[in-house]
């Protein structure tokens, strides 16, 4: 995946960028994060426990010697429930700091919470993101799964697609079934 797509357009204030892609996109997102971190503070909300600190450090090292300083610019918080994710969004400082939400839908696939409740919470979260995006760049990654959780993945993705201004949909590259003959 990261061999095919190496750069996303940087998120812009006033817009919500959405990347719909499988897990392999994390490396690329860390590269984008590295670029943002060298410009200033950036907030990362991780909804799928998928923040890869080592990949970020590697991406930073490719362009700066000040890796530690850049790592300190990335402020991270992980959500393990949909309640937590929405609570985090509600508490974010609105000061123009770019916000990246990783694997936003993962916590909303929690079978322990009634589906309509999750839909409502997601709508709340997207409202908050709209408000934040008015003063800061916002990018969201929605992870696609190889074995979707029933129809819920799709139903939860729809409001995200409706909210986003730019949408990047990436698919995992097709793997060859077998080794091609040399001649």
């Amino acid at each position: 995946m990261d061999r095919q797509i190496t750069v996303f357009p940087m998120p812009k204030t006033g817009k919500i960028s959405l990347v719909v892609a499988p897990r392999g996109v994390v490396q690329t997102l860390m590269s984008m994060l590295a670029t943002l971190a060298q410009r200033g503070r950036v907030i990362v909300l991780d909804g799928g426990n998928c923040f890869d600190g080592y990949a970020l450090a590697r991406a930073l090292r490719r362009s700066t010697h000040q890796v530690q300083a850049a790592l300190k610019q990335v402020l991270l918080s992980r959500a393990f429930t949909c309640y937590q994710l929405v609570a985090m969004l509600a508490e974010l400082p609105v000061d123009g700091t770019p916000v990246i939400v990783l694997d936003m839908l993962s916590t909303f696939l929690d079978e322990n919470v009634h589906f309509t409740k999750r839909q409502r919470l997601l709508a709340n979260g997207l409202n908050l993101l709209r408000q934040i995006s008015a003063g800061a760049p916002v990018a969201i990654w929605a992870r696609t799964r190889s074995s979707p959780v029933g129809d819920e993945d799709r139903q939860l993705l729809i409001p995200l697609l409706e909210t986003a201004h730019d949408i990047w949909e990436l698919q995992a590259p097709h793997t060859l079934e077998h080794q091609l003959p040399l001649f």
Partner: peptide, 13 residues
């Protein structure tokens, strides 16, 4: 529970 992880620098992770 609504309370989430504090925002912390990635380096601290």
């Amino acid at each position: 529970k609504q309370q989430a992880e504090m925002l912390k620098p990635a380096a601290d992770l």
